Computed example of a mutant assay.
Amino acid sequence: MSFFKNLKEKISKQTETVTEKFKEGLTKTRNSFSEKVNDLVYRYRKVDEDFFEELEEILISADVGVQTVMELIDELKDEVKKRNIQDPKDVQSVISEKLVEIYNGDTDEEQASLNIKEGLTVILVVGVNGVGKTTSIGKLAHKLKQEGKSVLLAAGDTFRAGAIEQLEVWGERVGVDVIKQSEGSDPAAVMFDAVQAAKSRNIDVLLCDTAGRLQNKVNLMKELEKVKRVIEREIPGAPHEVLLVLDATTGQNAMSQAKTFTEATDVTGIVLTKLDGTAKGGIVLAIRNELNTPVKFVGLGEKMDDLQEFNAEQFVYGLFSDMLEEVEQAE
């Protein structure tokens, strides 16, 4: 049980508020996934092929993704053999350990956190309509302001009716200005205006909204490429981040969206919204493992500060917190 002790120690060094947010935000996934794992380890007397087959089904039903599940099961089998684990209850610790390993992989801290530069940082936010893109931009603006950064928003989604107004509402709520043009305008022209405004006002972070059309992938690619060209021409090396917003409740559909957008533009990180609204939080692991793109933020509720930086240890703790408490009491 040393892994659980180490996990608890790592969690204790972070704020209790963050721990509680992950715990509450993952309630639906924990109630589904963790309960099934608990039931599994208590039903079996030994770790055999049937045990692994059932575990495989549980992981797939949590949207961990078939490819990731196969890799995870193979690694678990190797580890169980290596450690000579006989009692299924002891596999729980190994599962937790492997989930953290899969997520962290070879990601360094710079990749995992938001890439804020000296001077002006430009963050392009992409994703289909309805995933919570504008809301995520508003919450991210709030978070950055709380950290003492000056923020400006660019209303680059000029196609969806009401998109500009929605961004303006968030701008007022957070207390940041929005650079906009009329509906139907060229998004690249909006970005040009926004970059000029950000430079003249000595803004720290420019958050750029974009249209979320997927019906025609060619148009999407051309539009994003044009927007990026305009930004890069004005600020070499920008955009510094391209954040893809995905809705966790759509499960494997989010994976197909992610693949389309990573083909269209260089996505540097994922914002996974509505994680609190799904029992299939395993999609986090599938995204990380199959796309090799870090999940940088997760939406754990509807409040302004419920957009949290993703943390693998907090995530695993949120999944297994009930079981960890049982282990603690037993010890």
Rank of each mutant, 00 (worst) to 15 (best):
Pro88Thr: 04
Thr273Asn: 06
Asp74Thr: 11
Asp276Arg: 12
Asn115Trp: 01
Arg201Ala: 12
Lys228Trp: 09
Gln166Val: 13
Thr268Asn: 12
Glu110His: 09
Val176Glu: 08
His240Leu: 07
Val245Ser: 02
Glu172Ser: 13
Gly105His: 03
Ile102Glu: 02
Glu232Pro: 15
Leu300His: 04
Val205Arg: 07
Gln329Asn: 14
Glu309Gln: 11
Phe22Gln: 07
Gly119Trp: 07
Leu40Glu: 12
Gly301Trp: 03
Val126Arg: 02
Glu325Lys: 15
Val271Tyr: 01
Ala194Glu: 01
Ile179Val: 15
Leu291Gln: 04
Ile123Tyr: 05
Leu26Met: 12
Val190Lys: 08
Phe51Ile: 14
Ala238Thr: 11
Ala189Ser: 15
Leu224Gln: 02
Thr250Ala: 12
Ser256Tyr: 07
Glu53His: 10
Glu79Cys: 01
Met1Cys: 10
Tyr317Ala: 13
Asp106Arg: 08
Leu40Gly: 11
Glu49Tyr: 11
Asn115Cys: 03
Glu328Ala: 14
Val128Ile: 08
Lys89Val: 09
Arg83Glu: 15
Lys303Pro: 15
Glu20Leu: 15
Leu72Lys: 00
Ala330Cys: 01
Gly171Arg: 04
Ala330Gln: 10
Val100Asn: 05
Thr293Asp: 01
Leu291Met: 08
Lys89Met: 04
Gln14Cys: 02
Arg160Met: 05
Asp48Trp: 09
Lys217Asp: 01
Gln314Phe: 10
Ser321Val: 11
Asp48His: 11
Gly277Glu: 14
Asp39Trp: 03
Val218Gln: 06
Val91Phe: 07
Glu331Ala: 05
Val230Phe: 00
Phe4Asn: 06
Val37Trp: 09
Leu206Pro: 14
Lys77Leu: 05
Leu272Glu: 04
Asp63Phe: 13
Ile231Ser: 02
Trp170Ser: 08
Glu232Leu: 07
Lys180Tyr: 07
Lys117Ser: 14
Ile11Val: 13
Glu9Pro: 14
Leu144Ala: 00
Trp170Pro: 15
Glu79Trp: 00
Leu152Ile: 11
Ala112Val: 02
Asn253Lys: 07
Gln308Ile: 09
Ala62Pro: 14
Ala198Tyr: 06
Leu243Ile: 04
Val64Asn: 08
Asp78Gln: 09
Ala161Asn: 06
Asp87Lys: 09
Gly119Asp: 07
Glu110Met: 10
Asp177Ser: 13
Ser321Lys: 15
Gln181Glu: 05
Ile11Glu: 00
Leu144Asn: 00
Val66Pro: 15
Asp193Leu: 07
Ser150Asp: 02
Asp305Pro: 12
Gly251Met: 11
Glu232Val: 05
Ala254Val: 08
Asn216Glu: 03
Ile283Gln: 13
Ala161Phe: 06
Leu72Tyr: 03
Gly132Cys: 13
Tyr42Pro: 11
Val151Met: 06
Ile235Gly: 12
Lys228Met: 15
Thr158Glu: 12
Glu56Asp: 14
Ser256Gly: 02
Glu101Ser: 10
Ile11Pro: 13
Ala258Leu: 06
Glu57Pro: 11
Val131Asp: 04
Leu99Lys: 00
Val128His: 01
Lys28Ala: 12
Lys82Gly: 06
Asp90Ile: 03
Met191Gln: 06
Ser32Gln: 04
